Amino acid sequence: MELMEITTFFSDAIYLVVMLVLVLIVPGLIIGLIIAVFQAATQVNEQTLSFLPKLVLTLLMVIFAGQWILQQLLDLFDRLFHSIPHVIG
């Protein structure tokens, strides 16, 4: 296995990690920002008002995007395991 193939594999793995984090975290960040603006406008300082919607949204994203996440991880590891004979031989 050449250095270019290894570099490509690691860059694909890092890109996949970034995409998976974005799918799970960004919606929670957006909801958190909306709730923070609402709290600032109404001067309501309740901790559960910001925590609970972010938790629920993150769990919903895991439910809805879970199949895609698992498929992406399986594709990456499938490519990794199929390249093992090329690395050894």
Rank of each mutant, 00 (worst) to 15 (best):
residue 2 E to L: 11
residue 3 L to E: 10
residue 4 M to K: 11
residue 7 T to W: 06
residue 7 T to N: 03
residue 8 T to P: 00
residue 9 F to P: 03
residue 9 F to I: 03
residue 10 F to Y: 14
residue 10 F to K: 06
residue 11 S to F: 04
residue 12 D to R: 13
residue 13 A to H: 00
residue 14 I to L: 03
residue 14 I to D: 01
residue 14 I to Y: 01
residue 15 Y to L: 13
residue 15 Y to V: 07
residue 16 L to K: 03
residue 16 L to E: 03
residue 16 L to Q: 03
residue 17 V to T: 14
residue 17 V to I: 15
residue 18 V to M: 10
residue 19 M to G: 00
residue 19 M to E: 13
residue 19 M to Y: 12
residue 20 L to M: 11
residue 20 L to S: 08
residue 22 L to N: 05
residue 22 L to D: 04
residue 23 V to Q: 08
residue 23 V to E: 08
residue 23 V to L: 15
residue 24 L to K: 01
residue 25 I to Q: 05
residue 25 I to M: 14
residue 25 I to P: 00
residue 26 V to Q: 07
residue 26 V to R: 08
residue 26 V to S: 09
residue 27 P to F: 04
residue 28 G to T: 10
residue 29 L to V: 10
residue 29 L to I: 11
residue 30 I to A: 12
residue 30 I to M: 10
residue 30 I to E: 05
residue 30 I to C: 05
residue 31 I to R: 09
residue 33 L to K: 01
residue 34 I to C: 11
residue 34 I to Q: 02
residue 35 I to A: 03
residue 37 V to P: 06
residue 37 V to M: 13
residue 37 V to H: 00
residue 38 F to N: 08
residue 38 F to Y: 13
residue 40 A to Y: 05
residue 42 T to S: 07
residue 42 T to R: 02
residue 42 T to E: 01
residue 43 Q to D: 07
residue 45 N to H: 08
residue 46 E to Y: 10
residue 47 Q to C: 00
residue 47 Q to F: 09
residue 52 L to N: 00
residue 52 L to C: 01
residue 54 K to Q: 14
residue 55 L to S: 09
residue 56 V to H: 05
residue 56 V to G: 03
residue 56 V to F: 07
residue 56 V to E: 07
residue 57 L to P: 00
residue 57 L to R: 05
residue 58 T to R: 01
residue 58 T to F: 13
residue 59 L to S: 12
residue 60 L to M: 15
residue 61 M to R: 05
residue 62 V to A: 15
residue 62 V to I: 15
residue 63 I to L: 14
residue 63 I to N: 08
residue 63 I to A: 13
residue 65 A to M: 14
residue 66 G to A: 02
residue 66 G to E: 01
residue 66 G to C: 01
residue 67 Q to L: 06
residue 67 Q to N: 11
residue 67 Q to I: 07
residue 67 Q to Y: 00
residue 69 I to T: 09
residue 72 Q to P: 05
residue 72 Q to T: 12
residue 74 L to T: 12
residue 75 D to Q: 10
residue 75 D to N: 12
residue 76 L to E: 04
residue 76 L to F: 08
residue 76 L to T: 04
residue 76 L to W: 04
residue 79 R to T: 06
residue 79 R to D: 09
residue 79 R to I: 02
residue 79 R to C: 03
residue 81 F to K: 01
residue 81 F to V: 02
residue 82 H to Q: 15
residue 83 S to L: 08
residue 83 S to W: 03
residue 83 S to T: 07
residue 83 S to R: 04
residue 84 I to V: 10
residue 84 I to M: 05
residue 84 I to F: 08
residue 85 P to M: 03
residue 85 P to E: 04
residue 85 P to K: 02
residue 86 H to Q: 15
residue 87 V to Y: 13
